[in-house]
Design a protein around this nucleic acid. Structure first.
Lengths: 225, 225
DNA sequence: GATACCATATTGGTATACCACACCGCAGCC
DNA sequence: GGCTGCGGTGTGGTATACCAATATGGTATC
């Protein structure tokens, strides 16, 4: 690290996991993380417990491990997400002000989200999180946050190609456009088809890259196909 | 407690909160809980952190406090719950086996759930949790668990009258009955109207008992009415 | 050569000492 | 009499020592 570290320990370990610096499935030990993150066991333990509740880290009889990427889990989360997101769209359609929606459109239209995978990932996350916030329901927002966190690592695959990034970009814009003209059912439909397309492409890439990921030492569990 | 304590520290503090032995809003200190629960700060701290992630305890600049009961939050959770529950019913209608549904009907029909407030509370919680489990989606189940936990304390009010308990009992039976004959939309409708009725009665009782609760030193925040 | 056993290192779990900060009350000064 | 400053007390945050359980690897024996 060449600059100071303003983030909390939790945020730093979280980022290491989300950026795949800590590989899925990798075992972690509290003492082993001490030198790496320059903290003692107590705060590291606290961070791990919080990460456990966010689904990024697991604890078993043998100790801690970075949560593996599991195809069946991805499918279940995607299904859950569909519920959350369509409720969020519906409520946002009722409650969001025009200014809110225009700000959301700005976010969705942000051109540089297409430029790099990381931009696309970050902007896409913000978009869905902001949409959930506009539902006016804090619990929907929190649920969406959990979903985005749990899907983040696999979405690295989704944003690799510029075509994918452009498609996501366009679908986000279309969704907000529908909301802006008061077409809530259209927006819901746009959200659902966006998610279904995204999920199937995600699962496909994941299946396609299982061998590659495994070759890099990243275990990929589950998956019927 | 007249019997040994097999439960984890987390479960014991959780129960104390849910049974209102620890009052909503009450401040907690890590050292203060040591003698009360016979553990040292480290595990108490761990339990508090977990309870924080479950929404039963809060942390602010001044320290820890039992989460207050807030009318606006109840409304938001109820709205969130409607989303979760109707998705759960729909998926359970698709995926649950006949045996699963019959077991659920047994649970819903259990006569002693009407007898005492505590029975009604416990059985009702199990019912909705089991229903969510039958959705086959672990994330829906977890979300339902969070919802039931957050609503548990206010539901003490709902289960006071025998009429309430009987009504809940009947509505649960009707919901499963609809699922058993394959009437998924009917079951969804039953769930939604059940929740809406429950919520409005809940909020009403809560408003009605604000003064009483406050008189007992239990703070009740929020509420437009 | 295989197997059983024992020493050891590593794990998370717990207890506790110390720290910095913040609030509160009392006392002394203006 | 009121205001200001200072000390005491209580808070969570951190570091660390110790414990029990377990996995592991090497060695000795059969």
């Amino acid at each position: 690290m060449d600059h100071r570290e303003p983030s909390s320990l939790h945020a730093r370990i979280r980022d290491a996991i989300l950026r795949l610096d800590l590989a899925p499935g990798q075992r972690l030990s509290e003492r082993g993380l001490e030198p790496e993150f320059g903290a003692s066991r107590t705060p590291i333990r606290a961070a791990l417990m919080r990460l456990e509740s966010e689904g990024l880290v697991r604890r078993d009889a043998r100790g801690w491990a970075v949560a593996p990427i599991d195809l069946d889990e991805i499918r279940a989360i995607s299904e859950f997400r569909e519920t959350i997101e369509s409720a969020a769209v519906r409520l946002a359609g009722i409650r969001a002000s025009r200014e809110d929606l225009e700000a959301l459109l700005d976010l969705a239209s942000s051109a540089d989200s297409v430029e790099t995978p990381e931009n696309s990932l970050v902007t896409g996350t913000s978009f869905h999180l902001e949409l959930a916030r506009l539902s006016g329901n804090e619990y929907l927002r929190t649920a969406m946050e959990g979903v985005m966190t749990r899907l983040y690592r696999t979405r690295w695959l989704e944003v690799q190609s510029v075509e994918s990034r452009e498609r996501v970009h366009a679908e986000h814009e279309a969704l907000v456009a529908a909301l802006l003209v008061g077409d809530v059912t259209g927006a819901e439909r746009a959200a659902t088809s966006h998610l279904r397309g995204t999920e199937s492409r995600l699962v496909e890439s994941l299946q396609g890259s299982r061998l590659r990921l495994r070759a890099n030492g990243i275990p990929v569990e589950g998956g019927r196909a």
